[in-house]
């Protein structure tokens, strides 16, 4: 096991390096210089030279890459737009995104797994077919469109704003009011962020459960007279949930991409919105950092999922 984990960790290193190289290459191989758009077109050649020097753009690409990497990891990378340290900007936005994604994750797992298990146990029933169709709807619906429909509905119904992270013009809140207000604003974006995940994971749970149900030991359990519930929810479910662990890693890039759209629609002050604003403002140091960090997170998520899988499933021996 230790050998497997070490081997797996070593495999991650070249991929991590590849991620940073590609993030760097994308920004620098595109036409135009990264500072081109932030400069006044009348800027004298001297100022342009100075700007290039400040951002190391006068050096050869491999040197630029090395300097960028060094700055990224020492926290000395500054935003092109306001000169603030990039890592600090990201850290400021992190709690909002984490909160949103955590709630979405909770919604996904608390709904998707029961739905998937239920669909598998009552296979081809009316409700199973309904879940199947619902899952197709879930992966097909444009999230921003669903967001607008729900905003329209909620505002018409309750007459209370849903955008942002808190309500404006209310300064002094008791703790209870603060929490309620926060929940109100969290509700819609986290539900919409969860829709795709619910669809995917419920289907995954369903097929995993179906796979387990046809095993011999399930037939044995039934034959020795255990109740259906015991067989399905005690014996089958445990084994069916094992592969779901590996999905965890795949969820991360989807949630990050989803955050870009949903945080923009709901004016949620998180990393997704920061990413979009940085793209709009051509703030490439922020864009590159977010690209690198989120891909790195995905890589670590996959790694954690693989190791966890090997730990929880004793049948897997590498």
């Amino acid at each position: 096991m230790t050998k497997y984990i070490i081997g797996r960790l070593l495999q991650t290193i070249p991929i991590l390096i590849g991620i940073t190289i590609i993030s760097f290459a994308i920004i620098h191989l595109a036409p135009g210089t990264p500072i081109g758009l932030t400069l006044n077109p009348k800027a004298s050649p001297k100022i342009i030279e100075q700007m290039k020097k400040n951002y190391d753009l006068d050096k050869p690409l491999p040197v630029q890459y090395w300097l960028w990497l060094k700055r990224l990891f020492t926290g000395k990378l500054y935003s092109f737009k306001d000169g603030k340290p990039v890592l600090k900007k990201i850290a400021e936005r992190l709690p909002a995104t984490l909160l949103l994604n955590l709630v979405a994750m909770l919604i996904i797992f608390s709904l998707a797994i029961p739905l998937g298990v239920f669909s598998a146990v009552r296979r081809y029933s009316f409700l199973d077919n309904l879940c199947t169709f619902g899952a197709y709807l879930g992966i097909s619906i444009p999230s921003f469109w669903l967001a607008y429909l729900l905003i329209l509905g909620t505002v018409k119904l309750f007459g209370y704003p849903v955008l942002g992270m808190r309500s404006f013009a209310i300064e002094e809140l008791t703790v209870v009011e603060f929490i309620l207000d926060r929940w109100w604003h969290l509700m819609l974006p986290s539900i919409i962020l969860a829709v795709g995940g619910i669809a995917v994971i419920s289907r995954y749970t369903r097929s995993s459960m179906l796979e387990v149900i046809r095993q011999d030991y399930i037939r044995t359990a039934k034959a020795k007279g255990l109740s259906e519930d015991d067989v399905y929810y005690k014996h089958a479910l445990r084994n069916a949930l094992l592969p779901i662990v590996t999905i965890f890693g795949f969820l991360i890039p989807g949630l990050i991409s989803g955050s870009v759209i949903i945080e923009t629609v709901f004016a949620w002050p998180g990393i997704g919105r920061l990413a979009y604003q940085a793209v709009l403002a051509r703030d490439y140091s922020v864009v590159m950092t977010i690209l690198t960090i989120s891909s790195g997170l995905t890589l670590l998520g996959n790694l954690a999922a693989d190791i966890l899988y090997a730990v929880v499933d004793p049948r897997i021996r590498y």
Partner: peptide, 12 residues
């Protein structure tokens, strides 16, 4: 596959 696809497209 590690890149958040949508954000990558947006950037490019």
């Amino acid at each position: 596959m590690c890149f958040p696809a949508f954000f990558l497209m947006l950037t490019i």
